[in-house]
Design a protein around this nucleic acid. Structure first.
Lengths: 199, 199
DNA sequence: TAAAATCCAACAACATGTTGTACAATATTC
DNA sequence: GAATATTGTACAACATGTTGTTGGATTTTA
C-alpha cells in the first residue's frame, strides 16, 4: 500500500476533496470546479477519472457498502444458538461502527437516500435468505419486521452520531438489545416511575 | 376550494408539473424549462412564483409535514389509558396513510433525506415533550428508543408502498402493534416452526 | 547507457446549456 | 379600459463535457 502511482495519488486527492466538500454541503451544490480547485488540479483532469460529480459519490458509496460476508458470517455463527436474529444484528451494528462517521453522513439529512435504501435492502435480503432456511411462518410479514428493526437500528445510530455520542457506545448497544428483545411498550412500562404497568 | 384565481391555477399547475417530474427523476436533473414546458408556460413565468426548483420541493414538503395537532391530539387522548405510546404511534401512522403515495416517495430512495429527518425530529420532539410530562426514567436513553420506533414504522410503511401493498393495510397495522409490543426477538421465537424458543 | 519512440496525466480553450434577471409587448380578467 | 398575468426576448454569469496540445515520464531499441 506504500507506493502509489501518480494516477492513484491524483484520484485519491480528488476523492478526498470531494468528501470534504460533501461533508459541508449537499451534492447538488458541489461543482467539478469546487473539487479540482480544492485538490489543486485543472478542471479537465477531473474528467479523466470520473464522468461527473455523482459518479464520485457512487464510488464512495460502494466503498462503504458491507460485503456479503460481513453480514453472512455472523449469521452462520448463530445457527447453533437460539437467539436467532440478535447476533446477526450486532454484526451489522459492528460494521456500522467501524465505518463510522462517513456512513452516518450518508445516512443523515444531508446524505443519500439511495445509499440508505440499498444498504437496508442488502441486509434485509441476506437476513431473509437466512430466515427462509430456518422454516419460519409468515415469511412475507416477517420481511416487514426485519425492515422495522434494521431501520430502527440504523437510525438510532445516526441519531447517536448527530447527538455527538451523548451516551456511551456500550449504553447504545444495551439499548439495541433491550429494544429488540422487549419491544417499545414493554420497555416504556418498565421505565415509568409512578404508574401501573398496564396491559 | 372551487374558484381559484388565475394566479392560483398557474401556481398549482407548476407545482403539479414539478411533482410529476419529481416522481420520475431526481430533483437535480429537473430544470425550470422541464417544469414550464410540461405545465405549458413560459420559462420566465416560473420565476414570478418561485425563485428556484428547490424552493418548489420545499413547498411540497411543508404541505406534507404533519401539524403539531396531528401528533399532539392523539397523545392527549391516551393520557387516561395505560398503553402510553401505542395510540400516539397509530395517530402518526394514520397521518402517513392519509398523505399516502407522496410521502412514500419523499421517504424512499429517490426522495429527500432532509424531509425524513425533519419529520422524525418533529414527531420525536413532540413525543419527548409528552414523555417528560409523565415522569419517565432515563429520558436521554428513551429518545433513542423513540427514534428506533419512529424509524421502524416509517420505513415499514415505505417498504409496504414499495412492495405494492403485498399485505393488507390491516395486516400492516397488526404488525405495527405486535412489533412495538413484543420486540423482534419474541416475535421471531413465536414464529419458528420446529425449534425451541430459546433463552 | 544513451537515444528514440511512445505514453499519458494535466491543461487551456471551446461549444453548449442552464440560470436568474430585466423589460417591453401581448393576452386575460373583471 | 384598467389592472393583472403571461409571453418573448435578450443578457451576463456560470457549469458542463469535449477536444487537441504539451511536456514529463516510461518503455523500447540499439
Amino acid at each position: 500500500m506504500a507506493n502509489l502511482s501518480r494516477k492513484e495519488v491524483t484520484r485519491n486527492n480528488l476523492l478526498e476533496a470531494f468528501w470534504s466538500l460533501y461533508v459541508e454541503k449537499p451534492i447538488e451544490r458541489i461543482t467539478v470546479r469546487d473539487i479540482t480547485d480544492l485538490a489543486g488540479y485543472n478542471r479537465g483532469t477531473f474528467y479523466t477519472y470520473f464522468s461527473d460529480v455523482y459518479e464520485v459519490l457512487e464510488i464512495q458509496k460502494s466503498a462503504l457498502m458491507p460485503t456479503e460476508d460481513m453480514i453472512i458470517d455472523p449469521l452462520k455463527e448463530i445457527q447453533n444458538n437460539d437467539g436467532v436474529i440478535e447476533e446477526s444484528i450486532n454484526g451489522v451494528s459492528e460494521y456500522i461502527k467501524n465505518h463510522g462517521e462517513r456512513i452516518a453522513i450518508l445516512l443523515g439529512p444531508g446524505g443519500d437516500p439511495k445509499f440508505t435504501h440499498e444498504l437496508k435492502a442488502r441486509v434485509r435480503g441476506i437476513i431473509m435468505d437466512f430466515v427462509r432456511g430456518i422454516d419460519i411462518r409468515e415469511i412475507k410479514e416477517y420481511e416487514y419486521l426485519i425492515e422495522y428493526h434494521i431501520s430502527g437500528m440504523i437510525n438510532m445510530y445516526q441519531l447517536w452520531v448527530e447527538n455527538e455520542s451523548n451516551i456511551t457506545e456500550d449504553e447504545l448497544s444495551i439499548l439495541y438489545e433491550r429494544i429488540s428483545h422487549d419491544g417499545l411498550l414493554n420497555i416504556t412500562s418498565g421505565m415509568l416511575n409512578d404508574r401501573k404497568t398496564g396491559s
